[in-house]
Computed example of a mutant assay.
Amino acid sequence: MTTEDSSTDTFVSHLIELRTRLMRAVGAILVVFIVLFLYPGASAIYDILAAPMLASLPTGTTMIATGVITPFMVPIKVTLLAAFVLSLPVVLYQAWAFVAPGLYKHEQRLALPLILSSTILFLLGMAFCYFVVFKTVFEFIAGFAPQSITPAPDIEAYVSFVITMFLAFGITFEVPIAVVLLVKTGITTADKLRSGRGYVIVGAFIIAAVVTPPDVISQFMLAVPLCLLFEVGLLIASRMKPLQAEADETETAG
């Protein structure tokens, strides 16, 4: 067998492995989706998601659906989102399992802490958005609206807004993981990241201005946690040794 044939076989085997991992991740999401669709049901899950908005609307006011199939499709989308969030540990594990064979043993030890911490932080970001940000922003908008206007948000636009905000805050809460990984893998050091703190702060407010609605409150509620979480990541990373240093110490001890 020639070197070219061997390289082709390796590439094909990687594609097969990728397909297997993707199918398992998608399968986990579908299983959770079916369970949630049966109980508590797509409508009940949507009602939970809509609760912060409904609480800020005038008494007796409800949300509207302008599309023909929107009342059916929107709860389905929300249930699928919930299924993805609940299946996140499986999805992350499948992603890690795909790249793990190409890593050293001391790098593979990061798998479990990385999956657990990433999942927990992402869920904390979504929870912070749901219980704190939505309540604050919706009440601010409702209080700012003129008395002559009766707000009746469209459910499709609302879900798009909610998904964007969930992703923004979920990813924001992953900042400590990113900082730790940058230092742990030796890409940079905690001191270098600390010296670039000013750029991080400016970048945080730029990202918040782009992602969040055009109001100061929601922008601050995204930018400030991002900056604080960056500092948390620096604090943790400064107490950790790079993977290569740990590997060298292990070889020396051995």
Rank of each mutant, 00 (worst) to 15 (best):
T2H: 13
T8M: 13
T10L: 15
F11G: 09
S13I: 10
L15Q: 13
L22W: 14
V31C: 15
V31A: 14
L36N: 02
L36S: 11
L38T: 09
G41V: 06
S43W: 05
S43R: 15
Y46C: 07
S56E: 06
G60N: 08
I64L: 13
A65V: 08
T66F: 14
I69H: 10
I69R: 00
I76Q: 01
L80N: 05
L81T: 10
V85F: 13
S87P: 14
V90Y: 09
A95D: 04
V99T: 14
A100Q: 11
K105L: 10
R109P: 00
A111H: 08
I115K: 04
S118E: 00
I120G: 04
L123T: 02
C129W: 04
C129S: 12
F131R: 04
V132W: 07
V133Y: 01
F140K: 07
F144Y: 08
P146E: 06
I155D: 05
A157F: 10
A168S: 08
E174A: 03
V175N: 01
I177R: 02
L182N: 04
G186V: 02
D191G: 07
R194P: 01
V202D: 00
A208P: 01
A209T: 06
I217V: 09
P225I: 00
L228S: 06
M240G: 12
M240Q: 12
K241V: 11
A247K: 10
E249R: 08
